[in-house]
């Protein structure tokens, strides 16, 4: 019950790492849009996906606090993507190997 009357007036500021992460994400967004206009031939797509993965990694590690989490939570976070990889790998295998 002691926390109810805590003074509220002081100005609260977010941690630096959150702000840096946010700025980094916006920078990566700018980078991926810029790069998508560069003629990299077949590399445009891998580049876009790589940047998207980095952005997702930032969100997961910092916003979703995965960097502070134990093995089990990380395993759960990875599980969905691992099974997605199975779906894409075996699903695409048929279409890529058709003659």
């Amino acid at each position: 019950m002691s926390e109810i009357r805590r003074p509220e007036r002081r100005l609260w500021r977010p941690f630096v790492d959150l702000v840096l992460c946010w700025i980094g994400l916006l920078a990566l967004l700018g980078l991926t849009v810029t790069l998508s206009y560069q003629p990299l031939a077949s590399f445009n797509f891998p580049v876009a996906m790589t940047i998207a993965t980095i952005k997702a990694g930032l969100v997961a590690a910092i916003f979703m606090e995965l960097r502070h989490r134990s093995g089990i939570i990380r395993a759960f976070a990875a599980a969905g993507f691992f099974w997605l990889a199975i779906l894409l790998w075996l699903g695409l295998m048929d279409f890529l190997t058709r003659v």
Binding site: T32, V33, S36, Y37, Q38, P39, L40, N44, F45, A48, M49, I51, A52, K55, A56, V59, A60, F63, M64
Partner: peptide
């Protein structure tokens, strides 16, 4: 918050799949 970040995370990939293809040609 976890849920909201996830919605964001999905969009990051959708953005790369939907808006970026074909821009360089």
């Amino acid at each position: 918050a976890l849920y909201w970040h996830f919605v964001d995370l999905v969009w990051i990939f959708l953005f790369a799949l939907i808006y970026l293809p074909g821009r360089s040609s």
